[in-house]
Design a protein around this nucleic acid. Structure first.
Length: 256
DNA sequence: ATGGCAGGAATGTCCTGA
């Protein structure tokens, strides 16, 4: 079983790339973020024609998340949003796929530490931690995939000093990430790759991708039981090289 | 120090992203 996460920065624009990538990579579960698409206009027909089912939680202009599941896999128990947290922004959707509890999340960016959005980010992170803990209490096989908008360590950013205590890298954000790890989750990418300069997002400006000046902020955290099944986790940079790409590129984990 | 690129909403130019 392979699971992936990809912030597509508008599914309307990126749908052909998503379908191409799935044709090239016929994985079982693809979590998408930043659909930027009203819920009713989700392109279900095109996705079904490609052999996938979908659960989605759309919103006009901003946010929006979806889980695409290959036909033949079971898809059930869909929950949109964080239960018990009244949030106008549609950032989370969960589903159970072949017995694996999958949570797809588009974490808050936060803009800057001085912004009210940063306070929203910290509150949102606390609500997510509570949600993940409650899910782990009932699901042994659990994965949290998404755009975390957190670079966990200095080696996950191209210019650690320049990013010092900037949003994505602040101590409270990294503490939240570490608390998720402390719940018994593993950063699946780091199970297989200890290198620095491994990024999942590059700014569109200033040829940052060509210069490999990016940040690793898209992650797949997996429970102990899935860690035992994991055989690989890779960042697929290919779609970032395509015409009119998303600024994020997919991350894929392979489970036995 | 600033803006630079991209998408959406709208049709001016601003908001948001990271």
């Amino acid at each position: 079983m392979r699971l992936a996460t990809w912030n597509v920065n508008s599914l309307k624009v990126r749908l052909p790339q998503v379908l191409q990538w799935l044709a090239d990579n016929p994985i079982e579960v693809l979590c998408l973020q930043e659909l930027k698409m009203d819920h009713p206009v989700f392109p279900l027909a095109e996705i079904e024609a490609a052999g996938y089912q979908a659960a989605w939680f759309g919103q006009k202009t901003y946010n929006g998340v979806a889980i695409l599941v290959k036909n033949g896999c079971s898809l059930g128990d869909v929950v949109a949003g964080i239960p018990g947290y009244d949030d106008e922004q549609r950032r989370v959707i969960a589903a159970t796929v072949d017995g694996v509890r999958v949570v797809c999340a588009y974490f808050v960016n936060g803009e800057s530490v001085e912004s009210p959005k940063y306070q929203y980010k910290l509150q949102w992170l606390a609500e997510l931690e509570r949600y993940v803990a409650s899910e782990l209490a009932v699901h042994r096989d659990f994965a949290l995939l998404g755009d975390y908008n957190i670079a966990p360590e200095d080696r996950d950013v191209y210019d650690p000093e320049g990013w010092r205590e900037q949003v994505l890298c602040t101590t409270p954000e990294r503490d939240s990430f570490r608390r998720l790890i402390g719940m018994g989750l593993a950063d699946s990418f780091r199970l297989f790759n200890d290198e620095d300069k491994q990024y999942s997002w590059w700014d569109y400006r200033a040829m940052m991708f060509r210069r490999n000046m990016g940040v690793r902020i898209d992650h797949i955290l997996i429970s102990d039981s899935l860690k035992a099944r994991a055989s690989a986790c890779v960042i697929d940079k290919a779609p970032r090289k395509w015409e009119r790409p998303s600024d994020h590129t997919p991350v894929v984990v392979t489970l036995a």
